[in-house]
Design a protein around this nucleic acid. Structure first.
Lengths: 352, 352
DNA sequence: CTTGTTGATTGAATCGGTTCAAACCTACAC
DNA sequence: GTGTAGGTTTGAACCGATTCAATCAACAAG
């Protein structure tokens, strides 16, 4: 593999032992007599042998000892998006602990994605299904390796996945604000369907393509209705989780005669953008507007005021996913994990 | 590899062709007659063959088509540190374009790092040498694969590396502030030696273990001296690039009778922490204090005011590094790349 | 002096492909 | 009818290790 291309066989011959013994020197040192072992090791060093080649070993073992994390996004997505980052950090931690390698597998372009997935040297995949999830699942299936989907935006029960309790978490978030006394709400949503941003009506939401967003709104609605707030009275603005559309949404929501005193953001990223926007406009958080996010990314704890949010248990999710893939113990049922309300400074009772 | 363990040989037999032909169907489809190709493909599908196993192919080819990025840090470092993130995003981009896989290889613990590096399935390494670089280089050498070091904190010319012009960049940063009229400077530095934070004197700096920090201070000094500012009059506070030590440094610098009007931060991360600290203290940037960072991470453009900084050409660096590793065209000399001053809102002439 | 046991070593098969020289067709020209 | 060129297909060697049944040496027990 390296320059001198010295093989185990060469070492064996040079040391005057069989290849089997030479192999044992490296992979099961205890079984060979110390004297011999020393000698072989010595010869190996002299020859500049770099140790057994991984590919050779691999071929035999059939295991790569690495998992791939895939998304239908440009590779840089893993380092740009706060949610992906938090999740990957957690996955990385689990891999670290179990000595498993981590390969990043990603491409926006379908062709490339296909190729990348096909040629990744991994034992299985964790799929980040934000957007384009079906494509990803389909491509991965062809590879015939164990995989598990995260944040699957789709109700298909045949896809093994672990997801968070979107409806329940959303309900908790909304309840928290309602209990503080808020009555004028607005929702800044993640995507319901392809390439659409702007205000959305109830009907559209019920017909949403992406189940995550739908479930969260449903959670909000259910909780608010127990406080007598009708869903018709809660404006929902769909964003694509990017700065431009979030700001457009805020312009929209705050140009009404009775702007909301409480905002439910479907991602922390949206919430953080919202916070800067509000502060830049001279509106105080939580004085004028209370704000709850969703995800629990670390950045939420680093802004002023801290962001109240529904924290996903990233460590648990990562643990489950990695284990499932490594042990090929893919759950046949979709697994759901709860989220926890983390109260920080961005929520307070409304003025007056 | 998967469940049914169907080999190419099985497909070949089932289709009634030789294994050689079957192989060609997948890897060089153009060479086999259409009719036959179709038939083999059909048989393959029927058998549920997932395509040629990568490991088998690998073994023959000797190339993995992936590079590893390694650091002597916990794996999560790649997703937490802004500089690492920016760099990785750039590396990811280059890999993306050339269809190369990207594996993350990292561990804080030496034992684990050793193991991880030894067992990573890659054709070469890019080393992120912030801290613990020697260890990393040494371990990687044993693997006998091409590698290139980034941000090498060490003058050893035998280590192939590409680095930025630390001294030159620092000089530019300092000159920029001096030309605006500033005369009272302070430096918030990255590490000079192991496990030390706090104010440092000239002698200590000259004996620094880490060359990056030393070169940058030297750059600052040289530029400032052309404006008649003596190095003795520029306090330097060493941080570990973490929030706590940066804030301690700021406390220290601003508790003097004549606090600085211009701060030179050796990383954007330090600069960003500084900005929040100043703002929280009611000091305006750039009104009361001007601030220049180093690195050019994207976050610097997203805060208010924007951070003036010395931008590393991440794309160029990544391009060079990836190419070098992939083509095994490791430069024998250390390569140096310039940095560019990016002026944003965080610098202005001093009050009065 | 056998026989049995233990521990170290060997040799060959195997993992799943790729590759390349040689054999094999056709088809067409002379 | 023979020769030649082209495109296909074959078969076997090879990539670099691991593994396991078989062998061997040495020594204890019967």
């Amino acid at each position: 593999m390296a320059k001198g291309t010295i093989r185990l066989a060469d070492v064996a011959k040079a040391a005057g032992v069989s290849q089997g013994t030479a192999s044992n020197v490296f992979s099961r040192p205890d079984v060979v007599r110390e004297e011999v072992r020393e000698h072989v090791l010595e010869t190996a060093k002299q020859l500049g042998y770099a140790g057994p080649s991984l590919t050779g070993r691999l071929l035999r073992a059939g295991k790569v000892n690495a998992i791939g994390v895939a998304a239908a996004e440009p590779l840089a997505y893993f380092f740009d998006d706060p949610w992906a980052r938090a999740l990957l950090a957690a996955i990385a931690q689990v891999c670290d602990a179990s000595g498993t390698g981590l390969a990043l597998v990603s491409a926006k372009d379908r062709q490339k994605l296909d190729w990348t997935i096909k040629s990744a040297l991994v034992d299985g995949f964790i799929l980040l299904c934000v957007e384009g999830g079906e494509k990803l699942v389909q491509l991965t299936r062809e590879r015939q390796l164990p995989f598990i989907a995260l944040a699957l935006n789709d109700d298909d029960p045949s896809v093994p996945s672990v997801s968070v309790d979107n409806a329940g978490g959303a309900a908790t978030a909304a309840r928290h604000l309602a209990e503080l006394g808020h009555r004028r709400f607005a929702v800044l949503a993640t995507e319901f369907s392809y390439d659409h941003v702007g205000p959305v009506g109830i009907g559209e939401i019920e017909r949403a393509v992406y189940s995550t967003s739908r479930d969260r709104v449903t959670g909000y609605w259910l909780a608010l209705e127990t406080f007598g707030i009708r869903r018709e009275d809660v404006p929902v603005y769909e964003t694509d989780n990017q700065k431009a559309s979030v700001e457009a949404g805020l312009e929209y929501l705050f140009s009404t005669p009775e702007p909301p005193t409480a905002i439910l953001a479907m991602s922390d990223y949206i919430a953080l953008l919202t916070m800067s926007w509000l502060q830049a406009r001279g509106l105080s958080v939580p004085g004028d507007v209370s704000l709850v996010g969703f995800d629990g990314v670390p950045e939420g704890g680093m802004v002023e005021p801290g962001l109240t949010t529904m924290a996903q248990p990233f460590a648990r999710i990562a643990e489950r996913a990695v284990r499932a893939v490594l042990d090929d113990a893919i759950p046949s049922e979709r697994e759901m994990i709860g989220v926890a309300l983390v109260v920080r400074g961005s929520t307070a009772p409304p003025k007056q």
